[in-house]
């Protein structure tokens, strides 16, 4: 077992993990942050996407021990004053999701992408989100939510 300390959603967390445990499993099982979902555990679906030190990563393809000392943000960390963050609000307004299983991955991926590319157009957003799989929506409502969030941010 390895002892680790990291910051998750602004809070210092510690844990004692087997080296083989993925960051996704650590967040879900050890920290009870079940908002991060696992949909494939081999890096393809994007449901487990979280932000580690300002970059989006797949938490199923990173070991928990590797996150020691890092700043990790999960979907639970996006709420503003207990309410929805601007992207979440725009996604609610756009009826972005159905079953919600893919949602944490899309929200985190789009959060990271919009932070780096606030001026992105639809085509760029589609490409940026093409590593995340949603089986329910056909994507349009998700793209619309991201576009709406980008537009609101630009308008201040």
């Amino acid at each position: 077992m390895v002892d680790i300390t990291l910051t998750v959603n602004g809070v210092t967390r510690t844990g004692s993990v087997e080296a083989r445990k993925t960051l996704a499993d650590f967040l879900r099982d050890d920290l009870d942050l079940t908002g991060t979902h696992v949909g494939c555990e081999h890096g393809v679906c994007g449901a487990c996407t979280v932000i580690v030190d300002d970059r989006e990563v797949r938490s199923c393809l990173m070991l928990a021990v590797q996150a020691a000392g890092s700043q990790v943000t999960t979907i639970e960390g996006l709420a503003h004053d207990g309410g929805l963050g601007p992207l979440q609000q725009a996604m609610w307004d756009s009826h972005s999701f159905q079953c919600g299983f893919c949602t944490p991955g899309f929200v985190m991926q789009a959060t990271a992408f919009l932070a780096a590319h606030p001026e992105a157009d639809e085509q760029q957003i589609r490409e940026a989100l093409s590593g995340n799989i949603c089986r329910c929506t056909g994507y349009q409502s998700i793209i619309d939510g991201v576009l709406l969030a980008a537009q609101r941010t630009r308008q201040g």
Binding site: R20, T22, M62, L63
Partner: peptide, 25 residues
């Protein structure tokens, strides 16, 4: 273990079973 983007899927599928991971990150 570098980025792990190929190695960790192989481990998850248990197609690779190294005794030791040397993390060079």
């Amino acid at each position: 273990l570098a980025g792990g983007q190929s190695l960790i899927p192989l481990l998850a599928l248990r197609l690779a079973r190294p005794a030791l991971l040397i993390d060079i990150n």
